[in-house]
């Protein structure tokens, strides 16, 4: 168990305040972070990991993140960055093994526990068969799964994933959400930046909605995803399929784009 907490968290990139006074705490479950492009989602999750200077406070297990070393943070929170940055043509296996770096003592090699974690992560994301392939030569979808395996291999109590589904086809996106769901059901905290409202509504326990850097909604999907909020935040008119227990929004563009904001 781990508790990730933001208190009046603000982040300025240059002169622009990208995240403004966000407060929330989460310790378990699958938490979706929603919001239109430029709402501050990525900056928010980067701040939660201590990757950008911030005002206000971020706490991991009640300790201000500024007082933790990078290694201490790394063992508690795994991070799957946005995009598919891969600078060297490593094999899939070697790449997933990078996830064990936070656990390795200096000058030691991967031990049995590390190997098990790597195998486990590859099996869950169905990339075991690709293990000897060069990661930079995979398709976008395969690469997304390999990078997710890399993040799962950390086996940290929390996982923060920035758009983990961005280059997956519908079947793999579904499978990806099921994976995140399973991680959450295993007692971990999974905080995922998502764009697919339907998947978010179906799989998440809780949604945080950002708009212009501020947290405008925080709660269960059924309570958060109202047609009114979606019109305000995304500028779309949503038809919410009210099919209990699921309330799934289907979005359509409002005439005159952001007229509703």
């Amino acid at each position: 168990m781990v508790k990730v907490e933001a208190r009046e968290l603000s982040v300025a990139l240059g002169r622009r305040e990208v995240v403004r006074g966000v407060s929330f705490a989460a310790g378990r479950g699958l938490v979706g972070v929603l919001g239109p492009n430029g709402a501050g989602k990525s900056t928010l999750v980067r701040a939660l990991l201590g990757l950008v200077p911030h005002a206000g406070e971020v706490r991991l297990d009640e300790t201000p993140i500024a007082r933790l070393t990078r290694a201490e943070i790394a063992r508690r929170v795994a991070y799957l960055p946005q995009g598919q940055t891969l600078h060297w043509p490593l094999t899939v296996e070697r790449l997933v093994a990078l996830g064990r770096l936070p656990h390795l003592a200096p000058f030691s090699r991967l031990d049995e526990a590390d190997r098990t974690a790597i195998e486990h992560a590859m099996a869950r994301t169905e990339v075991t068969a690709l293990r000897h392939r060069t990661a930079t030569e995979l398709s976008g979808g395969e690469r997304a799964r390999v990078l997710l395996a890399r993040a799962l291999a950390v086996e940290a109590p929390a996982l923060i994933a920035d758009e983990p589904l961005s280059s997956l086809d519908p079947a793999h996106a579904l499978h990806g959400m099921e994976l995140l769901r399973a991680e959450a059901d295993a007692g971990r905290l999974v905080l995922a930046v998502l764009h697919d409202l339907t998947l978010a509504a179906r799989f998440c326990d809780r949604l945080l909605v950002l708009h212009d850097g501020a947290l405008v909604a925080d709660g269960a999907p059924g309570d958060v995803l109202s047609a009114e909020l979606l019109a305000r935040v995304y500028g779309v008119r949503a038809f919410i399929a009210d099919d209990p227990p699921l309330r799934v929004p289907l979005a359509r563009i409002v005439d005159g784009a952001n007229a509703a904001t």
Binding site: R46, L49, L51, T69, R70, A71, E72, I73, A74, R75, V77, A78, Y79, P81, G83, T85, L86, H87, W88, L90, L95, L98, G99, L101, P102, L104, R150, V154
Partner: peptide
Amino acid sequence: GRALDALTLGEDGAAALGVN
């Protein structure tokens, strides 16, 4: 060596793997 390996994932990726 390890810090350089982690940088394969970019600066954020490396930092999140515990690299200072």
